[in-house]
Design a protein around this nucleic acid. Structure first.
Length: 520
DNA sequence: AAGCAGCCCAACCGCGGGGTG
DNA sequence: ACACCCCGCGGTTGGGCTGCT
């Protein structure tokens, strides 16, 4: 592995930057772009290594950096994202405009970590301390990593399972709907569908569709019910809800959840929440939908997009996202309206019900000026849409660069894209496991090359400049391309989606909110 | 006022992935 | 397939600052 020797070279300056050095660096980059960092110091007349220059630029000199105190909103975002992503600071930073990963990392280590610890929440696991200790065998960091990885693995498995089902669906006759299945759906049972039986697309709520695709026997359950997904569901979220600690007692949790449900879908005194609290240890080790099934009345409720969902819905949230809304397509008008409202934060996440379609419309409309959307055979648009959106969901939530300047996804492209991403995830190792290249067409349009974001344009966004990386270098007009930021509303969606995930729900509870707000 | 401890954060270190020849 | 190079990332360090004794 050819690692660059970097700063140990004799004669290169280290330590704090002087204003003169800053000025030199700024002037050079403004005029030429940074190009090769290694070559930059010599060209700019700096006695620094390229790495040092890069760090100074990315963490301090860059014009699109916001400095100063973190707002409450930013704090909460960091906490929620850390609960989901762990110490993936760069990924977290992509959700906090104008903040650098280094700044966020420092802020976490110096402020938030301590504050959470003070509140009795383990900053590594985002669980109540007592649970972290009891379940982690004294290795909270391991537990944290496990939880985060479990969530991603969960997403991956569900996406893969979905693709498998899509294949089966395609293979089977679209018009075949077994009468007994219709009856089961009507009756609300969830576990008796055969894995080899084609599933009807519409009548099932998304999460029920996902779970009903499971085989009925334990040995065949690997399709959708992985130990990791069970872990992420039960371990992250339930303990806080049910722990009865000073943060939120069981009743408060139930009441809070009922509030999230608008007091309609979940009865605080109902069997659901009590069951969760009482049996949470069992849930950790042996959770299965079959076991709960009809015993848990909230599971038979129609799936609805509420900000706070029952714990059964939490896991289903991701599933539903990956599955898309099977309830029907939205009209373009309402999509636009919802998108606008979503961008202003005026709507509840139930607007997400049709969000996938909105996103695809956005992406397509932004990119279709050059290439008209491919006409899909009837019945295939939706599949293509969902797969493409799945890819985007994984990209966004995992902070993988979005390929927002790509042509509208056809089924084949989307399938290939998703498969590649999934395969890459599985095969890659290390912290870049989730990182994917951001591909853009090259100058000839004959192939794709990696693009790098070089700067944000005007304040407030709208467009973001990307530059094609090697071999063309950065800063050349011919190598840079401007792509529309069609993902603003998607980003909003992602935030609300993240907010709906298991552990983060704990932070939405009034008691915890209060602690967060008043411990600043 | 001096000494000390703790905090903060810019900067550094080193690992590892990706691109290229 | 391999070596080399570049760069991004997360963990860590250390100098400056602040508050306490």
């Amino acid at each position: 592995m050819g690692r660059s020797p970097c700063c140990e070279k004799i004669g290169l300056k280290k330590g704090p930057w002087t204003p003169e050095e800053d000025q030199k660096l700024l002037a050079y980059i403004e005029k030429h772009g940074h190009g090769s960092w290694r070559a930059l110091p010599a060209k700019a007349g700096l006695q620094r290594c390229g790495k040092s220059c890069r760090l100074r630029w990315t963490n301090y000199l860059r014009p699109d950096i916001k400095r100063g105190e973190f707002s409450l909103q930013e704090e909460q975002t960091i906490i929620q994202l850390h609960a989901l992503l762990g110490n993936r600071w760069s990924a977290i930073a992509t959700h906090l405009p104008k903040r650098t990963d280094n700044e966020i990392k420092n802020f976490w280590n110096t402020h938030l970590k301590k504050r959470l610890a003070k509140m009795g929440i383990d900053p590594c696991t985002h669980k109540a301390m007592i649970d972290a200790l009891s379940s982690g065998n004294g290795h909270p960091k391991k537990v944290s990593n496990l939880s985060h990885m479990a969530q991603w693995e969960n997403a991956r498995l569900e996406a893969e399972a979905r693709l498998a089902r899509e294949s089966k669906l395609r293979a089977a006759s679209n018009s075949t709907i077994l009468p007994q299945q219709q009856q089961q759906q009507h009756m609300g049972t969830s576990s008796s569908s055969s894995p080899t039986t084609p599933l009807p697309p519409a009548p099932l709520a998304p999460w029920r569709e996902a779970w009903s695709a499971k085989p009925a026997t334990q040995g065949e359950r690997i399709d959708l019910e992985s130990p990791t997904s069970t872990l992420s569901l039960a371990e992250n979220w339930l303990p806080i809800m049910a722990s009865g600690t000073e943060l939120v007692d069981g009743n408060a949790a139930a009441a809070a959840a009922a509030t999230h449900q608008g007091g309609e879908n979940l009865e605080p005194e109902g069997t659901g929440w009590k069951c969760v609290a009482k049996d949470r240890v069992d849930c950790f080790t042996g959770f299965s939908m079959e076991a709960l099934g009809s015993e848990a009345p909230w599971l038979s409720e129609p799936y609805t997009w509420q900000a706070g969902c029952s714990w059964g819905q939490l896991g289903a949230g991701f599933t539903a996202m990956l599955l898309g809304d099977s309830g029907g397509q939205n009209t373009s008008d309402s999509c636009v309206q919802e998108e606008e409202e979503e961008a202003t934060g005026l709507v509840e996440p139930e607007g997400n019900k049709t969000y996938w379609n909105t996103i695809l419309n956005s992406v397509n409309s932004s990119s279709s000026s050059n290439s008209p959307p491919e006409v899909q055979p009837p019945g295939q648009e939706k599949t293509s849409t969902r797969i493409a959106d799945t890819v985007r969901l994984l990209s966004e939530v995992g902070s993988l660069p979005l390929q927002s300047n790509r042509k509208p996804c056809t089924r084949g492209v989307a399938m290939e894209e998703l498969n590649n991403k999934m395969a890459s995830r599985v095969s890659s190792k290390g912290r870049d496991r989730w990182k994917q290249p951001n591909l853009v067409p090259d100058r000839d349009g004959t192939r794709e090359v990696e693009a790098r974001r070089v700067e944000k344009q005007a304040k407030g966004g709208g467009a973001e400049r990307w530059s094609i990386g090697s071999p063309y270098g950065i800063g050349s007009n011919t190598s840079s391309t401007t792509v529309a930021l069609v993902d603003r509303s998607f980003s909003n969606f992602a935030s609300s989606f993240i907010s709906s995930l298991d552990v983060t729900d704990a932070y939405k509870l009034p008691g915890v909110q209060h602690h967060l707000a008043h411990s600043r």
